[in-house]
Design a protein around this nucleic acid. Structure first.
Lengths: 329, 329
DNA sequence: CTGAAAGCGCTTACAG
DNA sequence: CTGAAAGCGCTTACAG
């Protein structure tokens, strides 16, 4: 037989409000406290979440809106967030949007409607519609992966990472360089990394440097075709890729053309996916600590939810990892 | 200004109950219907989920209890489930247990408490505690990946897959064989695959066949050390691994010892992770269609939730993929 | 088809 | 510290 707060109150011989106070840490005398405690233990009473939320008008849930769950970066980040939120007494509700921007807007509203306390949006693009939704819902929102001055943001230092990769490639003696990027609508991945890379080039005095820029989709299969185009049109000594996935596609395309890496073609990536370490040769790349970012993001959103001060922009570090995929020229 | 059902009723000039009936598809006259529809549109009214659930005592949420999100199999399966559930008008709530069996039990209770309609448990082990919890919560539960005759189950045909791998390895002429498995507490992965493999061996008449069995953890790093032990003690011509992750670890260990694959050592896996296709040489393995399983599992749990007939056990197929990691002896 | 009323299980001022 | 009462926003018999 399912018990409610009235049952507990009756059995314990107190009022419902007293039980409620006990449950929510209000002031209750030691004697009553013990009585109620006992009854709750005996009956196995569990408060009804809906009734609580209906009155309290909030929950201790944090929502994560994720474009895709089946990516290394997302799943690592979500796992990190989940661990931290559990520590902090919150539950994570994950919404998968299948890379559909429209569904991100829907998700924002859905979560607000469910009285979620806060939302972390794994952003790829921040459109006007996103901003409108964020303003409307009146729930703290944090952007992860992109930044906007109106919204609390968490980004990786993609610009510096791009710069470092550029410097490295040049220092290894490469002069005929191809950059295989992604759409500029993704500011972090499509613009920042490329601009940082460009800066390194601009600083290089050597007049022999030749760079061509190409664009690929995010999927490995798309990268394979993009790489084939690059290799067909020019003969770069290195292809700098905007993501590890793209780099993997390039390596695949190279092996299909019987090009050896790094002897015939050097490759670099961004991301630091586990795979990049397993494959042979190991991929030189920039590693982001996704799990840690997840933890941090969780801490921040909880602060926001509790009206604590949080810096509007957090820039996360990275680690440049040199492996075997780039040859010295 | 946030509107509630009473506001809508007042504005539309009808009773709250009529609005509720309209919302829930009860019988309402054409005229009233139009009036209410208009008011709802004008006000942007959205019913409060908690109040609904409080009365209706159920939600249209399905819970997924997942040991870890950052694994290829889980994330693919979850994504598939999510897509299907969305189609069916349900929302997926994902709980990550971080491979802690105790937290699986907690999660079962938590979800039940939140009046989740149904639960899919991504199982690795089914203990007595699991069964007790499942019996107690009175919410339909489905097991994914393991089977138990008391609970609706979804499993892969691991036995047949193991058998097929065994036959293949023998047909390629291997006689000195090492099997690197996992704990038998995981019945599907630890027992079924091995037993299927054993059956193939038992059917082989050749008296020269020599097999040794070893055990590894699930992590690639653990597999690397396990593999080193195997390679140190015996000189198998092939290592049959119980998962792709383990196979990857073996390949890594082999390359550290300067063993060429497949010339010096052949390797096989189970799982069909995307990586296995990218690496060089490609890994010969058994591929499970996780995304599709996710879709199917979603359909089943929804049927269960709606008291429809569902077969107690569903066995999912697999696909044997021959690539380059096994040499002909 | 429609409405008035009771109730779901809590929380929260308010008064004592 | 404690209790009675009102109310959160819905749904659901019941009567008409």
């Amino acid at each position: 037989m399912k018990k409610n707060i009235a049952d507990i109150a009756r059995i314990a011989g107190v009022a419902k409000s007293t039980v409620s106070r006990y449950l929510n840490g209000g002031s209750v005398s030691e004697a009553t406290r013990r009585k109620i405690e006992q009854v709750i233990k005996d009956t196995g009473y569990i408060p009804n979440t809906f009734a609580q939320s209906l009155k309290a008008k909030k929950t201790s849930m944090i929502g994560a809106i994720v474009p895709r769950l089946d990516s290394f970066a997302s799943s690592q980040t979500v796992t990190g967030m989940d661990e931290e939120l559990r520590e902090l007494g919150y539950q994570l509700l994950i919404i998968n949007t299948g890379q559909d921007l429209g569904r991100e807007i829907e998700a924002l509203h859905d979560l607000a409607r469910q009285k979620i306390s806060g939302i972390v949006l794994f952003a790829t693009q921040v459109t006007e519609k996103h901003l409108t939704a964020i303003r409307e819902i009146n729930v703290p929102v944090m952007l992860l992966g992109q930044q906007h001055n109106e919204v609390h943001s968490f980004v990786y230092n993609d610009y510096m990472a791009g710069y470092e990769v550029g410097r490295y490639v040049l220092s290894m003696g490469h002069r005929k360089i191809a950059y295989l990027g992604v759409t500029e609508r993704d500011v972090a991945v499509g613009v920042q990394r490329k601009e940082g890379f460009r800066k390194a080039l601009a600083e290089c005095a050597d007049p022999n440097v030749m760079v061509s820029f190409y664009e690929s989709g995010f999927k490995m299969s798309e990268a394979v075709s993009a790489a084939s185009a690059v290799l067909g049109s020019s003969k770069p000594s290195v292809i700098v890729c905007a993501t590890d996935n793209i780099a993997l596609g390039v390596m695949k395309a190279a092996s299909m053309r019987r090009l050896r890496i790094p002897e015939d073609l050097s490759v670099t990536g961004f991301g630091g996916y586990d795979v990049t370490e397993i494959i042979h040769p190991g991929l030189t790349t920039v590693k982001y600590n996704y799990a840690e970012s997840g933890h941090l993001a969780a801490k921040h959103i909880v602060k926001l939810v509790n009206d604590q001060q949080v810096e509007p922009l957090t820039v996360l570090g990275y680690q440049f990892i040199e492996r075997e995929s780039v040859d010295k020229k």
